[in-house]
Simulated scan of single mutants.
Amino acid sequence: MKNRLIVVLLALVMALSLVAPAAMAADTIKIGGIGVLTGDYSKYGLAVKEGVDLYIKQVNAAGGVLGKQVEIIWEDTQAEPAYAINAYNKLIDQDEVVAILGAVLSGETKALAEVTAEDGFPQITPSATDYDVTTDRPNVFRTCFLDPFQGSAIASYMAQTNIKSAAVLYDNATPYSLGLYEAFKATAEEKGVKIVATESAAYGEKDYKTQLTTIKNTSPDALFLPYYGADLAMILAQAKEIGLDASFYGGDGASDIVELVTDKNLLTKLVYPDHFAVESENEKAREFVEAYKQEYAKLPTISFAATGYDAAMVLLSAIEAAGSTDKQAIVNAIKATDLVTVSGRIIFDEHNDPTSKPAYVLTFDATGEKKLLGQVDP
């Protein structure tokens, strides 16, 4: 009798040990976070992570979603598309997440989107600006503006500020630089900004003086430079060396240039579009800046912190609206989104891109602090 009782008790203990984790899981909604968290581009992924984590912390403090706490599980891609796919497989098979926030860079996000599209799995990227990320992928969304929009926005801003002529130096073999150039060129011609010179140079070049000298000889009012921070910093320094007197304009890749420039005075002539501005008068933006400062003891100067926060807001709002963690119900609810977020109002078009978000036009003061000049609406 005693032996039988012991066997029964052991069986009960084993059963409870299996049930307890399942019960805990049932009280938690798991979200997967995928992005570059280490290496050269980690500043972008870490900014996204900080924004996402902050919003989820606030939601959990307010009671969670569907009466449950939200857990975010992060995986590092190291900027490798293959790692993004491996992370996705791990998150859905082992962690049983219900949606993905990520990835961060366009290359890894496009690779990830190919596999999530096959599964119809909800995915929102806060930062991948390449147009094709969401093409033919009804389950994939973004909370940032696109490359064609920002190229066009800079040309529009030039026209608004009476720039009459512009030159372009870009990398004609890189999708980011090429995409911005093509959109800029089309809008500049439409708005009456004359392009007087077009030169190309690959990312990673050390000497841009030949192209810059050719541009200098055309005396443009402005020079459009769709490069990332490291290249842009070298171009600005070399333009000063040869005496090229013009205003300089970049894409959102200029957002991290401050730490790469020794002479901060160079930045006072640089203008670029960004996804968010700390000085925004949007009430949600002001609340976000204060909460971010309290949480991280710094300002959200990398705008992907804001678009990460927005991506989490869109996703968790959609799950609440769907009343379910069913993947198709979540996708349908995301598609129906109409939210005023930190970086602007988000309504998704037929391409799953936000249609109402502005580009915030920024420059820098002589200390490297960003200054809001205005905004260009879609």
Rank of each mutant, 00 (worst) to 15 (best):
residue 279 E to W: 02
residue 350 E to P: 00
residue 155 A to W: 02
residue 253 G to E: 03
residue 171 D to K: 02
residue 217 N to W: 00
residue 321 A to K: 15
residue 269 K to C: 02
residue 304 F to I: 09
residue 18 L to E: 04
residue 362 L to Y: 08
residue 261 V to D: 10
residue 30 K to S: 09
residue 130 D to S: 12
residue 353 D to F: 14
residue 288 F to C: 06
residue 76 D to I: 02
residue 23 A to Q: 10
residue 304 F to D: 03
residue 7 V to G: 02
residue 3 N to Y: 13
residue 239 A to M: 03
residue 90 K to R: 12
residue 73 I to E: 02
residue 268 T to L: 07
residue 97 V to G: 04
residue 243 G to C: 09
residue 292 Y to H: 11
residue 59 V to H: 02
residue 208 Y to Q: 06
residue 65 V to C: 11
residue 192 G to L: 04
residue 316 L to S: 02
residue 359 A to L: 15
residue 147 D to S: 07
residue 158 M to C: 09
residue 26 A to W: 01
residue 47 A to Q: 01
residue 323 G to L: 03
residue 222 A to I: 07
residue 376 V to M: 11
residue 266 L to C: 04
residue 174 T to W: 02
residue 170 Y to H: 14
residue 88 Y to V: 07
residue 96 E to M: 05
residue 80 E to V: 12
residue 5 L to N: 08
residue 208 Y to H: 02
residue 191 K to L: 00
residue 266 L to Y: 10
residue 254 A to K: 12
residue 271 V to C: 03
residue 53 D to R: 07
residue 21 P to D: 13
residue 377 D to S: 10
residue 167 A to M: 00
residue 358 P to C: 06
residue 135 T to N: 08
residue 100 I to C: 04
residue 178 L to D: 00
residue 337 T to H: 03
residue 153 A to V: 01
residue 275 H to W: 07
residue 99 A to R: 11
residue 9 L to Y: 11
residue 318 A to S: 15
residue 180 L to Q: 09
residue 12 L to Q: 06
residue 116 T to F: 00
residue 234 M to G: 03
residue 213 T to Q: 12
residue 243 G to P: 09
residue 191 K to V: 01
residue 124 I to T: 08
